[in-house]
């Protein structure tokens, strides 16, 4: 259904918002990606395990 399409096509400058948003997304994504990949695995492991070391994380009560 194109009933609104024709209308938005006529709005000037609206495309800019999308292009800007897209650029922003990709640059953000790349920064986060690089930063994340460069973090040390040891640190990651510590965080991962940290949630298992509190008092109730020994075997599940069921089984």
């Amino acid at each position: 259904m194109k009933i609104i399409s024709n209308l938005l096509e006529g709005i000037e400058g609206i495309r800019i918002f999308y292009i800007f948003g897209l650029l922003l997304f990709f640059s953000l994504f790349i920064i986060i990606l690089i930063r994340t990949l460069r973090r040390s695995n040891k640190e990651m492991d510590e965080i991962k395990k940290s949630i298992l070391t509190d008092d109730d994380s020994n075997e599940t009560a069921v089984s």
Binding site: T36, I47, K49, L52, E59, T60
Partner: peptide, 17 residues
């Protein structure tokens, strides 16, 4: 999920991204 399985999540980096 990690709690019930009693194992750390597979990849923490993946979770960030």
């Amino acid at each position: 999920l990690p709690k019930a399985a009693n194992r750390p999540i597979y990849s923490y980096k993946l979770s960030i991204i």
